[in-house]
Design a protein around this nucleic acid. Structure first.
Length: 728
RNA sequence: GCGGAUGUGGCGUAAUUGGUAGCCGUGCCAGACUUAGGAUCUGGUGCCGAAAGGCGUGGGGGUUCGAGUCCCUCCAUCCGCACCA
């Protein structure tokens, strides 16, 4: 099919090098580097003996050129049919059919299976003119490089496996360590001295690569080349919902619309489905034609078209002349912080960089990277409930004829009145199936119908169109709302098994926060999500411990209101311990916000409220500051208490309090005293106490004396404000 | 195979960046108040041990007066990419 695509490959190199200048997570940058897949090497031409054509191969190891013992083409390679000899024709055609039938997925899943066929033709070695058999094998990918490889079995494991399979020669051209047996495995390492390689002999791999490329270029038989794994991005979608591609066709030639004719809007259509002849939905709009006579392009743009630049529009959303004015662009420049999931690493987050670079090159925007900093938040995962399922095509214990179905368990055959639509197996019934149990696939069950690991059969069957499904249990089976007993001792419970995976509609494991909000309020939910752990970490959703966060909010409330619901805040100066508790919190939370460490902030607030409760703090200024610091975390309760203490303007407008280090200054410190690095006691010293005084006092301490056992210490380490360590 | 990350109490996690490991919260134990509690409050809670003390941050080794933190090595788990020539 003809397709629109965007030439992202042109930007491959810049997309790669740009990664070094942005503050994105290393794992995400690495994912993009892998995806772009830059490799440097050479492209080399191998003339074909019998026909007027040559095979171009790409290799990262031109140094091993003298170790080539055959050439392999991908089954889809253009030259395959042209070069194969009459004797081999039949075998080749059969192989091509086989390779075509094997889906891409199979090919990838089945990497170990080596298959191929000899074409009958020979290529000539570019330097030695040696005859090299041309093979066809599906371990060579049509989509990468030139779809052809020069095979060096001695120094490439895949070529080695192929050579062993088809008994092809293996020629060593690099020195290998004594313990390495080239009979058993290839030597793929990129170091060692070249041998049996004419002008490359004695060179190291790195030098040989350069020397070989130089010679190839001199003789016009190849050249140095950089290859990318990245493919151009398909840009057309055969769907309705997407921006129309502003192109029309005249005599089968595509023309773009003039800028003055934009935007091209989606036409109205009767139904959002392809036409009966398989055209995209837009083909349904019969009147939708350029100048009333030429068909528009019927494909629409993919989702990533819009998602690649919408952030620019946010800078100036009302602008009717341009997507954003130069002033707005100069002011906002780029995204300061992008908080997003790592699942977009090789999709959206690559496209948006590509798109940004393109607009930058056109001089339309001031930065060639969309986002300065990017953080991957972890996913809150779901706990799926699953039941194993019998497959009538695979599992012979479940058979059926047109009228009847039979279930064979422990040699006993049970006849079912009708063929069930599905057969699910409860966990406690797995032992009935013996070894078979291990081959059953898991099927997701809606978590809303599972309580404490057990499926609520009545509810589930009602609402899931599984009225005709059979649920095999330990003591019988559920079918059509009835339980049929076959073992009096066994239970009728339908027990699920659990698995933690991403929350998704299709996995029926989505839990909405609504019930939490209803029970505890939105602030509790919000705080609890932050309290669960670091932002970047993925973890299964669990409400274990949500009570603690809720209790914290109640405690906060009680700082403001006494047991009778009377406001107890006084406009009085606060004593030093209260100010210390407050300013510790201001400092820590301020730092946490900069570090996106929200879980530790919640903990800090808890400590603060515990301390203020202990101190019976009720001073207005302290409470005001506390509320402002808390407000981004628990906005609703903060706003409510803010108003309760007489503030009129919203707390969202209030200034973040300024941390005052004076309140944290201590004049003494309880030094941990260790002996040989092991903590033994604590002694309080003034912070300005001098080293010799501290040393004297420590050595006279009873506990230290005991550990000294009368010996004199080798030395005493004193780190001001930190520790004292006595070394014996 | 390549790359990225992670490993700390029963559990979720914390540790001023080389200086008292286990903060905060759950859970558990005990107690108070209650007709009652899935409410509230108080105390305890890393492990072994009666105690003194010993052990303890995935395993092993190293640097250091001192290592969860730095270095070497091995192991396990999760994620991404993968016959990429």
């Amino acid at each position: 099919m003809m397709q629109w695509s965007l030439r992202i490959t042109t930007y491959a190199d810049r997309l790669l090098s740009g990664l070094d200048h942005i503050d994105w997570t290393e794992s995400l940058k690495e994912a993009q580097r892998n995806w772009i897949g830059k490799s440097t090497g050479a492209s080399i031409f191998f003339p074909i003996q019998s026909v007027e054509a040559q095979i171009e191969v790409f290799t990262t190891r031109p140094d091993t050129l003298f170790g080539v013992s055959y050439v392999t083409l991908a089954p889809e390679h253009d030259l395959v049919e042209q070069i194969c000899t009459p004797e081999q024709k039949e075998a080749v055609m059969a192989y091509l059919l086989y390779a075509k039938a094997r889906s891409e997925r199979e090919r990838m899943a089945d990497v170990k299976k080596v298959t191929g066929v000899f074409s009958g033709a020979y290529a000539l070695h570019p330097f030695t003119n040696e005859l090299l058999p041309i093979w066809i094998g599906d371990y060579v990918l049509a989509g990468y490089g030139t779809g052809a490889v020069m095979a060096v079995p001695a120094h490439d494991s895949r070529d080695f496996a192929f050579a062993k399979q088809f008994n092809l020669p293996i020629k060593q051209v690099i020195e290998v360590p004594a313990e390495h047996n080239l009979e058993l495995a290839s030597y793929d390492e990129k170091h060692g001295k070249l041998l049996a390689s004419d002008f490359l002999n004695g060179l190291d791999v790195k030098a040989a690569i350069l020397a070989c490329i130089a010679e190839l270029e001199k003789q016009g038989k190849g050249k140095g080349k950089t290859n990318f794994r990245l493919r151009d991005a398909i840009f057309g979608r055969q769907r309705y919902w997407g921006e129309p591609i502003p192109v029309y066709y005249k005599d089968d030639i595509a023309y773009t619309l003039d800028e003055s004719e934009l935007p091209l809007l989606l036409p109205e259509i009767d139904t959002y489905l392809p036409t009966s002849t398989g055209e995209p939905p837009l083909a349904r709009a019969k009147e939708w034609k350029y100048k009333g006579q030429y068909n528009y392009e019927w494909s629409t743009m993919p989702g990533w078209a819009g998602s690649s630049w919408y952030f620019l529009r946010y800078m100036d959303p009302q602008n009717q002349q341009a997507f954003a004015s130069p002033d707005a662009l100069a002011y906002w420049k780029q995204i300061d912080l992008y908080l997003g999931g790592s699942e977009h690493a090789t999709g959206h987050l690559l496209y948006v960089r590509f798109w940004t670079k393109f607009l930058f090159d056109l001089g339309l925007i001031p930065k060639d990277e969309p986002a300065k900093k990017l953080i991957n938040q972890g996913m809150i995962q779901g706990t799926s409930e699953k039941l194993r399922k019998l497959d009538p095509n695979k599992h012979t214990c479940y058979t059926f004829t047109n009228e009847q179905a039979f279930l064979t368990i422990n040699g006993q055959v049970y006849a079912l009145s009708q063929k069930p639509s599905d057969v699910f197996v409860s966990e406690n019934a797995l032992n009935l199936l013996g070894d078979l149990a291990q081959t059953l696939s898991g099927s997701n069950i809606d978590v809303n119908y599972v309580e404490k690991g057990q499926l609520n059969y009545e509810q589930f069957v009602q609402s899931h169109h599984y009225q005709d499904a059979l649920f095999l249990c330990e003591g019988g089976y559920w079918y059509k709302g009835q339980f049929h007993v076959f073992a009096s001792a066994g239970s009728d419970a339908i027990v699920c098994f659990q698995e933690v995976e991403k929350m998704s509609k299709s996995k029926y494991n989505v839990v909405t926060p609504d019930t939490i909000v209803a029970q505890y309020g939105a602030d509790t939910l919000r705080l609890y999500e932050m309290f669960l752990g670091p932002l970047e970490q993925s973890k299964p959703w669990s409400t274990q411990g949500i009570e603690g966060v809720h209790r914290f909010l109640k405690k906060l409330w009680r700082l403001f209101y006494d047991a009778n619901g009377q406001l107890q805040i006084k406009d009085e100066p606060a004593p030093k311990p209260v100010l210390k508790a407050l300013h510790k919190t201001i400092k820590k939370v301020g730092e946490d916000i900069e570090n996106f460490s929200f879980n530790t902030s919640v903990s800090t607030f808890m400590i603060c409220v515990n301390e203020l409760t202990e101190l019976k703090a009720n001073q207005l200024q302290v409470m005001k500051d506390l509320l402002v610091v808390l407000s981004p975390y628990a906005p609703h309760i903060a706003e409510e208490l803010w108003q309760a203490i007489g503030m009129n303007e919203s707390i969202a407008q209030a200034q973040f309090p300024v941390f005052n280090p004076e309140f944290l200054v201590e004049d003494s410190f309880s030094y941990p005293i260790s002996v040989n690095g092991k903590h033994r006691t604590n002694i309080e010293f003034a912070l300005d106490a001098d080293a010799s005084f501290v040393e004297q006092t420590v050595l006279q301490d009873e506990i230290v004396q005991k550990w000294l056992e009368g010996k004199s210490p080798k030395k005493v380490v004193f780190v001001k404000g930190k520790i004292v360590n006595v070394v014996i």
